[in-house]
Design a binder for these strands. Sequence first.
DNA 1: TTATTGTGTATATACAGTATATACAGTTTT
DNA 2: AAAACTGTATATACTGTATATACACAATAA
Lengths: 124, 124
Amino acid sequence: MNIIISNSSNVPIYEQIKEQIKSKIISNELKVGEMLPSIRSLAKDLRISVITTKNAYEQLEKEGYVETIPAKGTYVANKNVEIIREEQLQKVEQLIDTVVNIARVSNISKDEIKSMLDILYEEE
Amino acid sequence: MNIIISNSSNVPIYEQIKEQIKSKIISNELKVGEMLPSIRSLAKDLRISVITTKNAYEQLEKEGYVETIPAKGTYVANKNVEIIREEQLQKVEQLIDTVVNIARVSNISKDEIKSMLDILYEEE
DNA sequence: TTATTGTGTATATACAGTATATACAGTTTT
DNA sequence: AAAACTGTATATACTGTATATACACAATAA
């Protein structure tokens, strides 16, 4: 499944999993209707408890990205594409807002940030 | 002291305090040598426990922003300005990196982000 | 000097979030 | 029918965050 978790991170494991799967759904690497790895196999893969993978899947279900059928599996849900994009735009806006606030108190110019953006956009 | 905390936030109270005081130090609203409010008065102000304000001050001390003298008070330390700026630049860079990663999977263009930046920079 | 008030400190405690192992229940495949 | 797969529920432990309360030192007022 190609998920990488860090135990030393302050971000909970279930959230790391959630975010990475969400990215795969949004980028269409995981397609609508496709089955996710079972909580057991994923747990075994990542060497963590099934409860943690279950927790991650539960969160994804709450946000509408997947659907779980007991004893069958968890599948990518048919979530509205426009809503997803809107959510992502809002997340980005929130981050940019934080950036701007830091920049203000630290006298970091808009140009400095734009060149950061240019550089990071080029990479890879 | 003009600090605003939110109990409903998922960010710990002590960290909210820490960040806001840090901002005041960086923007020079709190000047080197100046005494911070006592943990007691701040706790009373914000209607929280002294342990929480103490925790916030301890974190600030660890990061070198303040110095605490037992039974006397906590004072703004003489931290190197260049180091502070470097830290803030790194924080911004990390945020922009997150933004770029989200933008990639969601097909959000660099121009969209730049105009967000323009808009948020203008405000206030 | 002595008492009071103002500092930060330490201890014991509670609660919530995160994580675990293990036992349970339904579905599919053999 | 048995075996192998799904997700579920329960009991438990650890850590982070927050609390109240008692303690110790410094500065100030009587």
